[in-house]
């Protein structure tokens, strides 16, 4: 008898608890900044594309849903001419983000990607590239790489000496 009353009391008490269920979609769930959701391509602080088409995200992808093809601009800066993610295959594991040496590819807290037509789950570069730096601010890969690109010559990267003169013996 006592245990029955105790149970009733407990259920009754819960009626006054704060609701756990949220009224999605009118109300949005909180997703942590590092939540692994939709994948984007970001830009560096100067506004240049961060992706250098190194193919590391593609090779890290366990479901092989990233395909890209590199291209090079007239200043020697490499970028993906084509970048495609088949989100109908993506498992949001974040390996691509981990593999990315330039912070270009990032998983952001957005999960609203459902589609009626599966074909619409295929995202091209224009759907992926955003105008900001995403989660990681301040990193500019070409500032630390030894490669010369337009606007940055040899020896002008961080932690580099000016180029030596090979004709000198000193």
């Amino acid at each position: 008898m006592i245990s029955m009353l105790k149970t009733l009391w407990l259920v009754f008490k819960h009626a006054f608890h704060k609701r756990v269920t949220i009224q999605y979609p009118e109300e949005k769930a909180y997703l942590a900044p590092r939540y692994r959701g939709r994948i984007i391509l970001s830009r560096d602080p100067d506004g240049g594309e961060r992706c250098v088409a190194c193919y590391l995200c593609a090779v890290a992808c366990p479901v092989d849903c990233i395909a890209l093809d590199s291209a090079e601009d007239e200043h020697g800066r490499r970028y993906p001419g084509m970048f495609r993610i088949n989100f109908s295959r993506c498992i949001y594991c974040g390996f691509c983000e981990e593999a990315c040496p330039t912070y270009a590819i990032q998983l952001v807290p957005d999960v609203e990607m459902a589609e009626y037509n599966r074909q619409n789950m295929v995202y091209e570069k224009e759907h992926l590239l955003i105008d900001g730096q995403g989660k990681y601010h301040g990193y500019n890969y070409y500032k630390v790489a030894g490669l010369a690109i337009g606007g940055k010559g040899k020896g002008e990267a961080e932690n580099e000496d000016p180029p030596i003169d090979p004709k000198s013996l000193m």
Binding site: A58, C61, N86, V122
Partner: peptide, 16 residues
């Protein structure tokens, strides 16, 4: 063995 992009290379034509 580590050929990448299998499920995305041709996905623009047909997702299957």
């Amino acid at each position: 063995r580590r050929f990448s992009g299998r499920t995305a290379m041709l996905a623009h034509r047909d997702v299957s």
